[in-house]
C-alpha cells in the first residue's frame, strides 16, 4: 500500500541544516498495523506526516497504492488524502468553535456528501464511539478520552483505507488510552491499515510490526505475532 525509496527530509533555518529523515526505505501492506517507535526527535512524526501527504519530502520517492505521489500538486494531495487517509493526533486537533457532531462531519462536507447521508454516517460514528450524548458539546467540554474518540470518529467517518495516528494516547490517562487502542485494533481487524507513532511499548504491542527509528534512520523492523 505504501512504499518509500530513499526518503530524505531536511529542515533548514538561516544557517543550520538538520536531517530529520535519512534514506528511509519501507513498505507497508494493506491490513497491517505498524508502530513507529524511537526517541524524541528521531523523525517519527516527520515520517508519518510525509506518509500522510501533510508534508513533502526533500528527496526520495513515495508510492501510495503503486502510484508515485510525492510530486503531487496540493490539489491532488488533498484529493488523495480525503478519499483514503484518516488522521488521529496526540493533541486531538479538534476545531474549538465546532461541536462534536460538526467536527466529525467536517471531512464529509469537503467530500460533498449529501446531508442525509452525512447525518446517517455521523450518527453511526457517534454511536460506535459511544459519544452520542456528547454530540452537541464543544471539545472544551469533553474529557481527553472523549475528545480523542471524537477525533477517531472524524478520522474513520470517510471509511479510509489508511489511518495515521501520531501518539494517539500521548495525552490520555491509561484507562482512556486503552480504550483508544482497542478502537484502533478493532478498526484494524475490520481491514483498515494503521500506522501509529508511539513512545509506549504497551501501545506498540497492539501492532503487528514495529519500526525503530534513530536519527532519521530505520534501525530495526520487527514482525510480531499479536497476542
Amino acid at each position: 500500500m505504501i512504499k518509500t525509496n530513499n526518503l530524505v527530509k531536511k529542515f533548514r533555518t538561516d544557517d543550520v541544516e538538520t536531517t530529520a529523515l535519512n534514506n528511509v526505505n519501507l513498505e507497508i501492506n494493506e491490513g497491517e498495523f505498524v508502530a513507529i517507535m524511537g526517541p524524541s526527535g528521531c523523525g517519527k512524526s516527520t515520517l508519518l506526516n510525509i506518509l500522510g501527504l501533510l508534508d513533502t519530502p526533500t528527496s526520495g520517492e513515495l508510492f501510495f497504492n503503486q502510484e508515485q505521489v510525492e510530486h503531487y500538486s496540493e490539489r491532488q494531495q488533498t484529493k488523495l488524502r480525503k478519499n483514503n487517509i484518516g488522521f488521529v493526533f496526540q493533541s486531538f486537533n479538534l476545531i474549538e468553535e465546532l461541536t462534536v457532531y460538526e467536527n466529525i462531519e467536517l471531512p464529509l462536507l469537503y467530500m460533498k456528501v449529501s446531508s442525509s447521508e452525512r447525518k446517517r454516517r455521523v450518527n453511526e460514528a457517534l454511536e460506535r464511539m459511544k459519544i452520542t450524548h456528547r454530540a452537541k458539546h464543544f471539545p472544551q467540554q469533553l474529557s481527553g478520552g472523549q475528545q480523542q474518540r471524537t477525533a477517531i470518529a472524524r478520522a474513520v467517518i470517510t471509511n479510509p483505507k489508511l489511518i495515521l495516528a501520531d501518539e494517539p494516547t500521548g495525552n490520555l490517562d491509561s484507562a482512556n488510552g486503552e480504550e483508544v487502542m482497542n478502537l484502533l485494533t478493532q478498526l484494524n481487524e475490520n481491514g483498515t491499515t494503521i500506522v501509529m507513532v508511539t513512545h509506549s511499548p504497551s501501545d506498540a504491542d497492539s501492532s503487528n510490526r514495529i519500526i525503530q527509528l534513530f536519527d532519521g534512520h530505520i534501525i530495526t523492523e520487527n514482525m510480531r505475532q499479536k497476542l
Binding site: T78, P107, Y110
Partner: peptide
Amino acid sequence: YKEMGIRKVFGAEFQD
C-alpha cells in the same frame, strides 16, 4: 491558522 490547518488535513481546498 491551526484551524485552517486541521481543515486542510481533512480535505479542505483553497476555495473552502
